[in-house]
Design a binder for these strands. Structure first.
Lengths: 330, 330
DNA sequence: CTGTTAGCGCCTTCAA
DNA sequence: TTGAAGGCGCTAACAG
């Protein structure tokens, strides 16, 4: 009933061989005599020996863990992307080391640095960090894959095609006869929010020329969707479609419209972005982003780089799909 | 432009001091001459030195990471509990090492063991593993907190008060005049599912004596809720209330009832368990489980044990709240 | 206040 | 096929 667990040396002593042999036997090396291996395995079993992953990592310079740095995400998005990563990671025998990155850039850099020596590579999702901040927070010797970050820092990454997604939404609404569209934007500084906003303006110029597009500021949170509707009504603006920059705000919009007795979709159509599970239940027309796949692909690319060729610096695009539901009926 | 990163020795060389001084200076030890400290800090900065957490852990026998072993969870629950843990963990300067545990007990044990040497303690959520399996999968020297596991193995843990939650639901329904209640149970072998089922039978015996309670098997997934309704109708059973063992099945139930043109709540009341965000949107009466808090409390208790007194073996109870919404109106 | 030295637990040449 | 020895990067006595 020893409380301290057995080390490789204990096993060696019990098996009456050297630690080198224990190491070889337990790691399936070829040149080990069957008898020796048997003795080692038996000894390990009676001692309840479990290799010390930390020591192993140090000596092999390989942790088999990958670090994930995420901002404070809303429920669905977070669980989906982590699920995707976990799926891929556990299939390849790696672990995931999580680190939430709070808004503060200094803290973010600190969080990233504190992973050196614990992980073999990094997946960083930092939509609000600027290119410069990110660049010198990332240790130069640690392979990293960026997910939805500013893509001009010459690192491997993935980017959602926000412009195309929003364009599909606008086209869909215009096809349905809507013209007076309003965009509820995400927080300034967030790259996805920025691209969706730009995409909206561009698409409006193309599909509804002559119409003055309206943009209301939001922050990706549900409450700001409701606030946006309040603002719109207070200003007395006419509108027949609201293009929210994400699903949560779209839900807030819908709640506020219902409260104001404005019929959806008859009077006003509503769309979101992301396609979180809630969207399906509430019949929200939105843009589907394959979140879990994105996570899995990021991991696959990182591990691939770790084990084979080094990381290439290009940014892969994640395509989206327009999902039409009931909030944009005619 | 060196690719290999600097070690403490490089810093020592540049600062012209010993590695011990570097270590002391960088870790804020008191007995270091200001000049020395300044030289060390400067050298570290010019070299872009970042301490190697792995080496540090090995020598201090402390990783400042805690391992989390979770089963395959559905979105909401997963993200909520991880969020709660992360909140607590990052406030205390620790990291979270994730490991999804798949159904297979052997794989689960393997996953747990592979964390030795990487973490200082473990949080394990294993509602489907039996006491014995869990007990010998857990390394004896690794502090562990169990969340919603079988509680008879003498380990620290947390348990949701399932019986009380279901009792509150039954009482609420009976108060509303419902008598012919049906329970859609979770998967057998799952401890929460078991307790909810038992709790249902007990509560029925108490609050609706003389009524024969009906239990239909489910598996916690949405589809099984719909299936249950189908079964019920096929058997021609009369019922005016459905008590699902979790929210997802309740949603399936609601969808099936709507499809069958059975009015909710007029003809049939529906309740869930967990209070995932979806429940609020759909007006589902349910039992709120403070999931994030549970995660945070588990972490707090574990880290507290790591840094102060050792872990006590008692199981703390997590209280629930009945949340009445529209699916149980009269 | 500072440097030297010995590990932490494991893997891996290098000889035998 | 096996053992001895060095080292991964860092911390912690122990002397000076």
């Amino acid at each position: 009933m020893r409380s301290a667990s057995a080390t490789i040396r204990d096993v060696a002593r019990v098996a009456e061989v050297s630690v080198a042999s224990v190491s070889r036997a337990l790691n399936g090396h070829s040149s080990v005599h069957p008898d020796t291996r048997a003795r080692v395995v038996a000894a390990a079993k009676t001692l309840g020996y479990v290799p010390h992953a930390g020591a192993r990592s140090l000596s092999m310079a390989r942790t088999h863990a990958i670090g994930v740095v995420l901002p404070d995400l809303h429920g669905e998005f977070f669980s989906e992307i982590v699920r995707g990563m976990d799926r891929e990671v556990s299939a390849r025998g790696y672990h995931l080391l999580l680190s939430n990155m709070h808004a503060d850039a200094a803290l973010a850099a600190q969080a990233i640095r504190s992973m050196r020596g614990r992980v073999d590579g990094l997946i960083v999702m930092a939509p609000q960090l600027d290119a410069e901040g990110l660049d010198d927070a990332l240790p130069p010797d640690l392979p990293a894959v960026l997910v939805n970050a500013h893509d001009d820092i010459g690192r491997a990454g993935f980017r959602v095609d926000n412009a195309a997604g929003i364009a599909a939404v606008v086209r869909h609404l215009v096809d349905g006869g809507r013209r007076k569209l309003v965009h509820v934007a995400g927080p300034s500084g967030n790259i996805d929010a920025g691209e969706r906003r730009e995409g909206f303006l561009t698409a409006m110029a193309e599909h509804a020329p002559g119409v003055e597009p309206v943009v209301i500021e939001g922050d990706f949170r549900e409450a700001s969707g409701a606030t946006a509707v309040g603002l719109l009504r207070a200003r007395g603006l006419a509108f027949d479609g609201i293009v929210a920059a994400n699903d949560m705000m779209a839900l807030g919009v819908m709640a506020a419209l219902r409260e104001a007795d404005i019929a959806v979709p008859r009077a006003v159509a509503v769309t979101g972005f992301d396609d979180v599970p809630l969207a399906r239940y509430l019949g929200l027309t939105t843009v589907r982003v394959p979140i879990a796949d994105m996570g899995a692909r990021a991991v696959a690319r990182l591990i691939g780089a770790l084990e084979d060729a080094p990381l290439t610096d290009d940014v892969e695009t994640i395509d989206t799909d327009l999902v039409v539901r009931t909030t944009t009926g005619s």
